[in-house]
Design a protein around this nucleic acid. Structure first.
Lengths: 222, 222
DNA sequence: TCCGTTAGTGTTTTAATAACACTAACTAGT
DNA sequence: ACTAGTTAGTGTTATTAAAACACTAACGGA
């Protein structure tokens, strides 16, 4: 089966930069390519947009197929379209960025598909295509959005402590924050709710667990 | 000549929302379609991405071809890709937004190409495709960026007064600003330079003319 | 020369942000 | 059972940034 057009068409892919946080380090999810071009190299999860599929749906589907992740937060980032970014044919990539808590995730790993693996943001392997540039832009956007939206809470699991949130913000932005001011600020946004339960994991005072009042919502700040 | 692929490819267009300001009103540039689909209706300038052309270049070229504008400020906005947005075939649109001063522009008008015409943002005709939604998003982005970047100055001609700038900001954001605070603020950004010349256009005190220190630069604020 | 109109200029008040140090609650080790 | 170690939790003051506010200057036209 072939498809014929009266003028040339580019291929279009969706590629996803998935961020998460573990052990106070920002991580991204990469897959190892098992086919040419760039066989064996690390790349962003992603793939070609189906002809009857929205780009958003494509991103969700490819992420599920290649990494096993589903139901996580996705946002369109930017479209990369220089003519020579893929050696095979003209490929335009609609890049997404995604945030997920690390807790309770299981990656497709060593399966028939590709290996998916978390990598420290500051210790990336060499990447296929222009995926390095895509990741740089995604990281810029992430740190920027942390300041003017509540998107950062997408890194949090269902229940979390205020110290968890502060440590997250410090990890992603790379700068320490005053404890009292941070807690005043995050609570003033009026998006968190005490659960009544507490988390005790060690020889110290247990911390109150919070949830998001409306988990789906992302508020713009200021 | 035809082009054949082993799996179906979407078409990709670049479409541009060009904003300008005239008589204290925000305007957008539309063209009247002379071909189906949506023949005779108004639409955004734009067209198909050449197979060896970057998307940015396509946006610049189409804008020039369809409206006569060149060398104006362009920024990628968002990529629209729901499967049914064009009745002919699957078309993915990479939307741009553009800002230009109105002074000294001449549009292609009634030529062999399409009619290009400025429309008040709040008095748009019915639009082809999903271009109405694209314009809404572009406007949101414009008002947002006005607050956290100096992109608004792309509306200004080579020389302008501080009152011109204030009136621009009031027009785009829709809210009045205190004169003294506005002037303190815009000067504190350290991006304007007195020319020494003054503009006198009426029976009142002439105003100092300013230029941008570095016209190409766009600063993020705060 | 008077009137209408827009340009230009500082100070005070108010609100937001940043700095800062101790007590509480728990566990593990003695 | 008490001590040491560790993280949670809490208000007040100082500093900085933003908002409010009214008059004089310069010009052209009547």
């Amino acid at each position: 089966m072939t498809y014929t057009y009266t003028y040339p068409h580019p291929a279009v892919t969706a590629d996803i930069v998935v961020f998460s946080v573990e052990d106070d380090r920002l991580k991204i999810l990469l897959i190892r390519r098992k086919e040419d071009p760039f066989q064996g190299q690390w790349a962003l999860p992603g793939g070609f947009v189906g002809i009857d599929e929205s780009i958003d749906d494509c991103a969700l589907r490819e992420l599920e197929e290649e990494t096993g992740l589903s139901g996580i937060y996705l946002e369109q980032l930017y479209t990369f379209g220089t003519p020579d970014r893929d050696p095979r044919e003209r490929v335009i990539s609609v890049a997404y960025f995604a945030l997920t808590p690390m807790t309770g995730l299981t990656l497709k790993h060593g399966s028939d598909a590709m290996d998916a693996q978390w990598h420290d943001i500051d210790a990336q392997p060499e990447l296929a295509f222009d995926h390095g540039a895509i990741i740089r832009l995604a990281r810029e956007r992430l740190t920027a959005k942390l300041d003017y939206s509540t998107v950062g809470l997408k890194f949090m699991p269902a229940e979390f402590t205020l110290s968890d949130v502060q440590s997250l913000y410090e990890t992603v932005s790379g700068q320490a924050r005053d404890k009292r001011n941070f807690r005043k600020w995050i609570l003033s946004l009026d998006i968190l709710e005490e659960t009544g339960r507490k988390k005790s994991d060690g020889a110290h005072r247990p911390a109150m667990l919070y949830t998001l009042k409306t988990p789906a919502e992302i508020r713009m700040i200021k």
